[in-house]
Nucleic acid binder design. Structure first.
Lengths: 133, 133
DNA sequence: TTAATTCCTGTAGTTACTACAGGAGCAAGA
DNA sequence: TCTTGCTCCTGTAGTAACTACAGGAATTAA
């Protein structure tokens, strides 16, 4: 059995975040010592690690909860999991596209912004009536 | 003079968001009609459009406020603006890198997740003791 | 005149945490 | 044994940038 600090180190999840996950029901409530301190089993720490990995992949918490209920089911969850993952992949793709466009616009603005004029061309562009595109 | 609905349509900023910007001091408070309704000049709407454009480029509100104070100054703001833009560009680049890596990991997991086994390889990978990478 | 639309203020909810405040338990050295 | 320092506890509030009501008043169109 491990105290919350150990659980944090082993899972990579911040202590405050662990307590937050417990409040929100993302992970089950651990047992407590006589003095009321949380005590984690290795399994519970593995669950924290699972949540952390999913979060690092950008899955929202609601979806992680779906994963957990799927992994406990009888019928093979693979199709469901893949579907969710692929939907998430599409979201990530859209985000990347957006950021790449944004980056181009930003770079374009920035590159026209070093000609030493009194008025900044970048601010002018942002304030003008023409759409930036 | 335009009511808030008009200002919203012309600037592309949601009505609730316009009021939020006003509360937060992102844009100046407009005048009011006798009955207390907000009335916007074209200049004020242009300012909303400016904020919208900056937000669409991902600039946080605090930085937009810096832009606005810079644009009102005597000394040429171009250098300052370019510096901020380039810093922001670096942030965007880092975000893109992150997402591209994440995408690869996600795709990798997803592609191994269609072999119809009873246990989902993707869930297994996320739950295993080995780091995902 | 009435119905539909727009607008008002003020408050609370969203996401996923993070940061206290104020207090108590615990382990190790002098 | 006492003290020092670390860890832990609960509960609350803050973060960013909105969004979503509730409950009511004004305006516009038919």
């Amino acid at each position: 059995m491990f105290a919350i600090g150990q659980a944090s180190k082993q899972s990579g999840v911040n202590i405050e975040t662990i307590r937050y996950y417990e409040r929100e029901g993302v992970v089950p409530k651990p047992g407590r010592s006589a003095a009321g301190r949380r005590l984690y089993t290795s399994d519970e720490i593995a669950k924290l690690r699972f949540v952390k990995r999913c979060r690092d992949l950008g899955f929202p918490i609601a979806i992680i909860q779906t994963f957990q209920s799927l992994s406990g089911e009888e019928h093979r969850p693979c199709t469901d999991v893949k579907l969710i993952a692929d939907q998430h992949l599409a979201v990530v793709d859209a985000k990347i596209d957006n950021l790449v466009n944004l980056r181009a616009a930003l770079k374009n603005l920035s590159e026209n912004c070093d000609n030493g004029t009194a008025t900044c061309p970048m601010l002018e562009a942002l304030m003008s009536d023409e759409p930036t595109k």
